[in-house]
Amino acid sequence: MPVQPTPGTPPQATSRQQADSAQRVELGATIRRLRKERGLTLVQLAQRSDLSHPFLSQLERGLTHPSMPSLHRIARALGTTQQALLASAVRADPDVTRQAIRVVRCGEGLGVPNVGGMARMLGSPQLGVHPVEYRGAQTDFGDYFDHPGDEFLYVVDGEVEVDLLTADGRVVHQLAAGDSLSYLGGTPHRWRALGDSDRFRLLAVQNATDPLTGTAEPHG
């Protein structure tokens, strides 16, 4: 259902609301398609992801906003990554051209709630990387995340502590604005903001993965 503009809403804001709504619908359609291709019912996906059946039903219809943690659970249950799911939603963006050129202005891009802040997908499904901007973060460590694609982190503002579980054991790095960190796909990782969490701004760039197989895609 198209977003109805609120009286007095600037045209630019209305356009962004419509794009966000279209991308949520596309995201839900991708999750539904992958679920059916894997022969799963909504109930089975709910059990595998530890999420409620009604929530998943609304998500597949584009009627609710998922969070990054819930997308991670869904992605693991479907054998893909949360970034791949987010990138698939960009297909609904009319600015994605056949040449796979994508310009994302400040405030644009599908925003997804994250613990302590927001995440914003900046890439597209045609590209070999999935860049995600994180604004705000929790000040306590949460659960570990892992995915098949290698990942690069760049701290734009604030300070962050990144906790990695490597083959040599647990490694913790403290990063400030201008610092970066890279690690192999499959490395369990988590991060937390140090100091003022509102200043926290991080760019995470992950190798694109095939939403069907979860394997790294070669560059075109």
Rank of each mutant, 00 (worst) to 15 (best):
M1K: 14
P2E: 03
P5W: 00
T6A: 07
G8Y: 02
P10C: 11
Q12S: 15
Q12R: 14
S15H: 07
R16P: 03
Q18I: 07
A19P: 10
S21A: 06
A22Q: 05
Q23N: 14
R24G: 03
R24F: 03
V25L: 05
E26D: 10
T30H: 04
T30K: 06
I31K: 08
R33V: 07
L34I: 15
L34V: 13
L34N: 11
G39F: 07
G39W: 12
L40K: 03
L45M: 15
R48T: 03
D50W: 02
L51Q: 00
S52P: 00
H53E: 02
P54D: 01
F55V: 00
L56W: 00
Q58L: 01
Q58C: 00
G62E: 00
G62A: 03
T64K: 01
P66Y: 00
S67G: 14
S67I: 08
P69Y: 09
P69M: 14
S70I: 01
S70P: 01
S70C: 07
R73P: 02
R73L: 01
I74R: 02
L78M: 13
L78S: 07
G79L: 07
T80W: 13
Q83L: 13
Q83A: 04
L85W: 14
L85N: 06
L86A: 06
A87K: 04
S88H: 09
V90T: 10
R91V: 12
D93S: 08
P94N: 01
V96T: 08
A100N: 12
V103K: 14
R105G: 03
C106W: 12
G107K: 05
G109N: 01
G111W: 03
G111E: 12
G111C: 11
V112G: 06
V112I: 12
V115C: 06
G116N: 13
G116E: 01
M118A: 11
A119M: 06
L122F: 10
G123V: 03
S124D: 11
P125D: 13
L127R: 02
V129R: 01
V129E: 06
V129I: 05
P131V: 03
R135P: 02
G136S: 15
Q138P: 12
T139M: 11
F141Y: 13
F141P: 02
D143N: 11
D143I: 15
F145T: 10
H147A: 06
E151G: 09
E151V: 06
E151P: 10
F152I: 07
F152D: 11
L153K: 05
Y154T: 05
V155E: 01
V156T: 10
D157F: 02
G158N: 11
G158P: 01
V160G: 13
D163M: 14
L164T: 07
T166C: 08
A167R: 04
R170G: 15
V171K: 13
V172R: 05
H173G: 05
A176Y: 00
D179F: 00
L181W: 03
G186V: 08
A193F: 03
S197Q: 15
S197P: 05
D198Q: 04
R199F: 12
L202A: 08
L202V: 05
L202D: 04
L203R: 09
L203G: 02
A204H: 04
T209C: 13
L212E: 04
L212R: 08
G214D: 00
T215G: 10
T215D: 14
E217H: 06
P218H: 13
